[in-house]
Design a protein around this nucleic acid. Structure first.
Lengths: 129, 129
DNA sequence: ACTTGACCTTCCAGTCACTGGAAGCCCTAT
DNA sequence: ATAGGGCTTCCAGTGACTGGAAGGTCAAGT
């Protein structure tokens, strides 16, 4: 299977698949003409990677998760630890963004948004407290 | 005022201040010895930038906001538009992250996290549906 | 046989907003 | 004179791709 088929099946761009090979996440074979050749195993790996990335895991986390997935002697605790750490990071990011959202919402709501220059948004950004 | 004083006052790293000059956000003068020289105006600008960045505005948004701030004939509508767009982006990001968080939380909660290899997290990542 | 067009390949550069580090100049205090 | 700290510039790296150029390969149509 060539790269565009793998791309279609996994919904990953060909560029991304090449990148994953470059950083050693997958190692597809090569056909006689030099084209990458993807087997079902590679498709499974790419699907796994796509799902993990969609959950926001870093590529390095994905590397670890993929290794655990392929290790029949893994402990689920190792997987869970990675997931918990990531979950914590996501929750922290949500908290940060929520604080920004609240502040911004307030500022947007108090700004007239007309032709006049007075603007609580700018006032807030320039205030030193 | 030298860069380390400006950095302390604004809580911005010296490197960041140099970067802001490099990309044309600020244009501090130079002392005879070649050191950057920061006036109150620059401190105000840097403070403004630090606040805007803390609210998640991109550097390019910051450039626009700074220009509006310094334009006495601005329309607050222009400021508000930038803020609204950014607010929308933040809300979208929160929605994305919240979906990830919910999925991850569920997976983490259903994973035993012990020495056994069975792991709903890996099962979920490898499932094709 | 030839051409067209869609594939595929590699390699280089750019994204965003810094951040680290090296090499070297400047200033003050001892 | 020297030691230290602060300042300068420049280069490279971060994460995870993404765009584009230059060129090889393949199948179909004429």
């Amino acid at each position: 299977m060539n790269i565009s088929d793998a791309a279609e099946i996994t919904s990953l761009p060909p560029k991304t698949i090449r990148y994953y090979e470059e950083i050693g996440l997958i190692t597809p074979g090569r056909s006689a003409n030099g084209y990458r050749s993807f087997t079902d195993m590679h498709i499974h790996q790419l699907t796994f990677l796509a799902h993990a990335r969609a959950l926001g895991f870093s590529v390095e986390d994905c590397r670890s998760l993929l290794a655990l997935w392929e290790d029949r002697d893994r402990a689920s605790a190792d997987v869970r630890k990675i997931a918990e750490t990531h979950l914590g990071a996501i929750e922290a990011k949500i908290a940060d963004l929520s604080a920004m959202r609240d502040t911004l919402r307030h500022l947007v709501n108090t700004c007239a948004g007309d032709n006049r220059p007075d603007c609580p948004i700018l006032n807030s950004l320039s205030s030193s407290d």
